[in-house]
Design a protein around this nucleic acid. Structure first.
Lengths: 335, 335
DNA sequence: TCTCTCTTTGGCAGCGCTGCCAATTGTGTT
DNA sequence: AACACAATTGGCAGCGCTGCCAAAGAGAGA
């Protein structure tokens, strides 16, 4: 590498051209392997690049080429604190690997206004595509996304109208399936533990559908505990203990998330409550640990990695797509 | 928003200038709130921007301004699968919020070569700074990072020489402290369960220091189980069962990660082994769930969020820094 | 040897923006 | 009313690269 660069001025393509004794366009062509070039030119350029330690400037490249070549993908997720979203990114990154695209990530903290600001900020980097979470956005977000003229993929939820492409599963159906499962197992005095539905809209949809099924059976939630902050085992445990203190006769609890359910299970263990004999537990997401539990958690497995991967596939697609990847009800041993 | 844009041509600053009836430089100045401008100019520009739905092109802006204004930050993590790294990103993103900087994330899958390729790719977007994980990199990575002329922050590990800035804690000391704790509690027949140390180098350092302390006490690991794939409760449980089958007389197990330890605890529960009476469990990371367990897990809490936050602070710093954020040994109830 | 075609090459405009500078306008002073 | 001075403004070069095009070189065939 060249250690004699005056700091502040990086090696440019022009430097490489001079060093290699060829024209700029030749260097450009060789580097992008685009158009024809002689073997000799390719060698000289490669040498010069290595000698100078040239790193192309994609800002300039994308600007000049009108976004030619693989570029950036803007991604907005609500949070890093819920494992769901890293899982999404994991699937996405895996699938993006090899395309040369890089993701620029923004975190909205479940705030639609912040999401809008992030979308504007991300679009200013002229990404090739925009990935959002959920279907609910501000008008401004929708307008920005539409006007950007790039593929937009909304992930996770399929219950509603998308801007462009949608990849996910039906949260409503997942909630309904959970309720049907509990009813089929004979549970009637059911409680719910989750976060604010105004914040986690998908959990809100599941809960609404869950309650809908209960209502059809002439039942209602016997109690509910809405927890502040993020989803965690500690919060689930505290919520469970509080809920059970208020409603001692509950025979099942539906959690918004497996993390929370794990906390509930810990609480049962600590209090010596038989699961599911005394009380049944039902989670959501199908996180890894659930199957390792002495009694596997009854839950709904969501295709998080697959959503990320499918979203990546959508990005490059020519036409908008709507993909429902479904979910799987895991019977487990806790409900 | 303007719905009449011929697709493919986005609104430019020149369009805004024309619409507002002012010069381009005026628009530029107003938008960046840089230099002086009259109230009238500001209003007209704001109107035009709103009317046209203008989104600035930062590719052009950064190119022209020599990287002026808040830009991109390149981040390379080994994986999204280990909660540690999303936690890092969470801290980072939180701290970056409001600076206007956006992070471009690459995942190396613990492969140094891939890390090098990612660094090259990220640098081509001319980020303001580069965040790497750990201190071990290929020569090429180091050369690229050095030549880039930007702040480089290596996160998590402080056991060694950094390229520029370093934020983390001593993995060696964490391993040593864990061993001292187990020895002090009287455990002598100790096993280890973790992933390949060649892959997770930090875990390797912890284990080496752990074994070093045992050696000083005239002891050695009685057995070890190296698991393929990623860290998970399921893997921890399977590893624990396998290890205990081979070494039935173990009285304590040190896990490379709390996830794995949770799996071990599940195994004990399923097999009816008293913890820590029959066998003690010791984890690493201090993940959220550990404190919600009926017996809180004995572990070492690592300052993951804080590392992310401190790294963000380093980015903007004028001089390289080395920050050791330490760790906390959590006595818990399993060892 | 000469022409015709195909390959390879370099020059240069321009992507959208910012920095610089000179020109213009407005304000306060005597 | 004429002046100095500050605030505001627009034109234009140029950031590093790519696309286009015309020019030059290399073969191939007559």
């Amino acid at each position: 590498m060249n250690e004699f660069q005056p700091p502040g001025r990086l090696v440019t393509l022009t430097d490489v051209a001079r060093e290699a004794g060829v024209g700029e366009s030749t260097v450009s062509r060789v580097l992008r392997n685009h158009g024809s070039s002689s073997k000799r030119a390719r060698e000289r350029v490669a040498e010069a690049v290595a000698r100078l330690g040239y790193v192309p400037n994609r800002l300039a490249g994308s600007l000049a080429g009108g976004g030619a070549g693989p570029g950036l993908v803007g991604v907005v997720i609500p949070s890093f604190a819920n494992i769901v979203f890293p899982d999404l990114l994991r699937g996405l990154t895996t699938a993006l690997e090899g395309t040369g695209m890089q993701s620029v990530v923004g975190v909205s903290e479940y705030d639609p206004e912040r999401e809008e600001a992030l979308v504007a900020a991300l679009l200013s980097w002229r990404p090739e595509a925009l990935l959002l979470t959920g279907l609910e956005h501000t008008q401004g977000t929708v307008a920005l996304a539409r006007a950007a003229g790039v593929r937009v993929v909304e992930m996770i939820d399929t219950d509603g109208e998308g801007i462009d492409s949608v990849v996910g599963f039906s949260n409503r159906e997942a909630g309904a399936a959970s309720a049907r499962h509990l009813l089929a197992r004979g549970y009637r005095r059911i409680g719910y533990i989750g976060l604010d539905s105004e914040v986690d809209l998908r959990a809100g949809k599941r809960l609404a559908a869950f309650e809908g099924v209960l209502a059809e059976a002439g039942l209602a939630l016997e109690g509910r505990e809405i927890r502040p902050g993020r989803s965690s085992a500690a919060s689930g445990r505290a919520g469970f203990e509080a809920l059970l203190a208020r409603h001692p006769r509950l025979d099942a609890v539906y959690f918004s998330n497996d993390d929370m359910a794990l906390g509930g299970w810990f609480a049962c263990l600590a209090a010596g409550l038989a699961v599911p004999g005394r009380i049944a537990l039902f989670g959501f997401n199908g996180l890894d640990f659930t199957e390792a539990m002495p009694q596997p958690l009854s839950t709904v497995r969501t295709p998080r990695l697959e959503i990320g991967r499918a979203a990546a596939a959508c990005l490059t697609g020519k036409t908008p797509q709507t993909i429902d990847l479904g979910f799987a009800l895991i019977e487990g041993a806790t409900a």
